[in-house]
């Protein structure tokens, strides 16, 4: 279908640009690790003994870091479109604004996932979470990590769903980075609440403990993907 091919090409373009400037990925990874270290130095050197407390600490550090990194990624992605009028070049091809939305969500999602896959194990190691895990969980470590990445993925998807449209409306303003943070952060609170709860649950019990929180993440993603898909036309065309 024509739509998928167009979206595919747009994603390809975004990924090429993101990785063309190689320092961008490195920069965001280093930034994230630095944020994690800030929390480690603030809480350490001896972290809470109890598994649940340690898990909550890990969850806060992970989700906080990914939010901040995500904002940098969003800003950067829209900067590229704004510079030299590239977005107008895209508009002129007559491509549907909603396809632009989907391609941005996917490419920023993939970029952030790459970051998160790298930073999550590093964070868990720095906070020494792995040694306090119950023996049963330690045995299934790869499986546990996979589930954790899965939860982070759904949260990241929700973040991107809102982030792309909010970034679209704030990118053409002076002070766009701060403005993006001020508008976007309140909107992402459910992701933080739900994501952190799921993370703690995984780290303490290996399971999600009922489907409530994961459902919040899923519903959040669906609601904002659908509404932003429709609203993005107004962001691009005015």
């Amino acid at each position: 279908m024509e739509a998928f091919r167009q979206i595919g090409w747009l994603i390809h373009k975004d990924l090429a640009l993101q990785f063309r400037t190689k320092d961008m990925l490195a920069l965001i990874i280093v930034f994230s690790v630095l944020v994690v270290l800030i929390f480690c130095f603030a809480f350490g050197p001896i972290f809470p003994e109890q598994l649940e407390e340690r898990g909550k600490l890990a969850a806060s550090v992970l989700w906080g870091t990914f939010l901040f990194a995500g904002i940098i990624a969003l800003n950067r992605s829209f900067d590229i479109e704004r510079m030299n009028g590239a977005l107008h070049g895209l508009r002129l091809t007559g491509v549907d604004a909603s396809y632009l939305y989907l391609s941005k969500v996917v490419s920023i999602f993939l970029f952030l996932m790459l970051l998160e896959v790298v930073v999550t194990p590093i964070t868990l190691q720095f906070l020494d979470v792995l040694t306090v895990l119950p023996v049963a969980l330690q045995a299934q470590l790869p499986w546990l990590l996979l589930k954790l990445i899965g939860v982070i993925a759904i949260g990241t998807l929700g973040f991107c769903a809102v982030g792309v449209v909010v970034s679209g409306i704030s990118t053409n303003t002076p002070g766009k980075e701060s403005l993006l943070s001020v508008i976007l952060l309140p909107l992402t609170f459910p992701v933080v609440m739900a994501g952190a709860k799921c993370t703690v649950s995984l780290l303490t019990t290996g399971g999600l403990g009922g489907n409530f929180w994961i459902s919040v993440l899923v519903v959040y993603s669906l609601v904002f993907l659908a509404s932003s898909y429709l609203l993005f036309e107004f962001v691009v065309e005015g």
Binding site: W9, L17, I80, G85, A86, T93, V95
Partner: peptide
């Protein structure tokens, strides 16, 4: 329509070939 204004309306980090390929595909 074909438009030429002061700004290139394209991605300066990409080559002419890549730009033309992208826009050509979108067209």
């Amino acid at each position: 329509l074909g438009l030429i204004v002061h700004e290139p309306l394209a991605y300066l980090e990409l080559s002419p070939y890549e730009n033309l390929k992208l826009f050509g595909r979108l067209y």
